[in-house]
Deep mutational scan, measured.
Amino acid sequence: NKFNKEMRNAYWEILHLPNLNEEQKNAFIQSLYDDPSQSANLLAEAKKLNDAQA
């Protein structure tokens, strides 16, 4: 299933973003579980936030 793979990839990438705190990571990961079809968008948002907090 495409979403499972996308979701897993997004999950791991978000988990390893160095500039997000636990609360931010948890919020993105919760959103992933709530709507796996948004994995790519959530990952993009997480990366933007990560870069902004660098």
Rank of each mutant, 00 (worst) to 15 (best):
N4H: 09
I14G: 00
Y11H: 05
N4Y: 14
Q38K: 07
A46N: 00
E23Q: 12
A27Q: 05
F3E: 13
F28E: 00
K5V: 02
N21Q: 11
F3W: 03
N19K: 09
K47S: 05
K5I: 02
M7V: 09
L20F: 03
R8W: 15
L42P: 02
M7R: 01
I29H: 04
Q53W: 11
D34L: 13
D51A: 11
Y11R: 12
M7Y: 07
N21T: 08
N9V: 14
K47D: 02
N26K: 11
I29K: 13
K48S: 06
P18S: 07
L20S: 00
S37G: 05
H16N: 04
D34R: 14
Q30M: 14
K47Y: 11
A10T: 08
L20Q: 00
L20E: 00
K2D: 15
N50M: 02
Y11T: 04
L15V: 10
R8Y: 15
A40G: 07
F28S: 04
A54S: 11
E23I: 10
D35V: 12
N50I: 02
I14H: 00
F28L: 08
N41Q: 07
Y33P: 03
A46H: 00
E23N: 12
L32E: 00
S39V: 06
A54W: 14
P18G: 09
L15M: 07
L43V: 06
L43N: 03
K48E: 07
H16S: 09
L17T: 02
K2Q: 13
Q24L: 07
H16I: 03
Q38A: 07
R8Q: 09
K47P: 00
N26D: 06
A44T: 10
K48L: 10
Y33E: 04
S31Y: 11
K25R: 13
L42Y: 12
K25M: 12
Y33N: 01
L17E: 01
L20R: 00
A44S: 08
E45L: 14
D51G: 11
S39Y: 13
L49K: 09
D35G: 08
S39W: 15
R8M: 09
N9P: 01
A27G: 06
A52R: 12
P18I: 09
A40M: 13
W12A: 02
L17K: 02
E13M: 15
W12L: 01
E22D: 06
A27K: 10
P18N: 14
S31L: 08
Y11Q: 06
A52I: 08
A27I: 11
M7F: 13
A54H: 08
N1D: 12
N41D: 09
E45A: 14
N26L: 08
A27F: 13
H16F: 07
M7G: 01
I29P: 00
L17W: 02
L42S: 06
N1K: 07
L20K: 00
P36T: 05
N50R: 05
I14D: 00
N41P: 15
N9T: 15
L20H: 00
M7W: 15
A54F: 08
S39E: 00
R8D: 01
E13T: 15
L15E: 02
S31D: 06
N19S: 07
N1I: 06
E23F: 14
L15A: 03
D34H: 14
S37F: 09
D35L: 14
N26T: 08
M7L: 05
L42G: 02
A46T: 02
S37N: 08
F28G: 01
A52F: 09
R8S: 03
L32W: 03
L42Q: 04
N19D: 04
E13I: 15
E22G: 12
N50H: 04
P36F: 04
L49V: 11
L15I: 12
P18V: 10
N41E: 05
N26S: 13
A27L: 12
A10F: 04
L20W: 00
K47Q: 05
N21V: 13
Y11G: 02
A54K: 02
N1W: 00
N4Q: 05
E23Y: 11
L32D: 00
Q24T: 08
L32M: 04
P18H: 07
N9K: 15
S37Y: 07
N21S: 12
R8V: 05
D51E: 13
S39R: 13
N4V: 05
Q30T: 08
N4W: 15
L17S: 03
E45V: 13
A44I: 11
F28K: 04
A44N: 07
I29S: 11
E22A: 11
E23M: 10
D51Q: 12
D35W: 10
L42I: 10
K48Q: 10
L17Q: 06
R8G: 03
L32R: 00
P18R: 15
E13W: 15
E23A: 10
E13R: 15
F28A: 04
R8P: 00
Q24K: 08
L42D: 02
Y11F: 10
N19M: 12
K47V: 04
N41Y: 14
N9A: 15
A46F: 02
N1P: 13
F3H: 14
Q38N: 10
N1R: 03
N1L: 03
E23T: 07
F3L: 12
N4K: 02
Y33W: 08
A27S: 12
L49E: 07
N9F: 15
M7P: 01
D51V: 09
S37I: 08
K25N: 02
S31P: 03
A10P: 00
N41G: 10
K48T: 08
F28P: 00
K48H: 12
L43M: 06
D34P: 04
W12I: 03
S31M: 07
Q30K: 13
L15S: 03
L32F: 02
I29G: 14
W12S: 02
P36I: 02
E45T: 13
W12E: 03
E45H: 13
F28T: 03
N19F: 12
E6V: 08
L43K: 10
N1Q: 04
P36W: 05
K2T: 05
E6S: 03
Y33I: 06
Y33V: 04
E13P: 00
A44E: 13
L49Y: 10
Q24G: 03
L32I: 04
S39N: 04
N41K: 13
L15F: 13
N21E: 08
S39Q: 02
N26M: 14
Q53V: 09
E23R: 14
Q38F: 05
Y33L: 09
Q30H: 14
A44R: 11
Y33T: 03
Y11N: 02
S37V: 08
S39T: 04
K2E: 15
N4R: 03
Y33M: 04
Y33F: 14
N9G: 03
P36V: 04
N1G: 04
A52N: 14
R8L: 10
Q30Y: 15
I29Q: 04
Q53F: 09
N4M: 03
L43S: 10
A54P: 08
K2A: 09
D35N: 09
D51H: 09
L20N: 00
Q53Y: 10
F3Y: 07
N19L: 05
S37D: 06
Y11L: 13
A52W: 13
P36H: 03
A46R: 00
N4F: 12
Q53K: 06
R8K: 11
E23D: 07
E45Y: 15
A46M: 01
N50P: 01
Q30F: 15
A44M: 14
S31R: 14
S39L: 12
E6K: 04
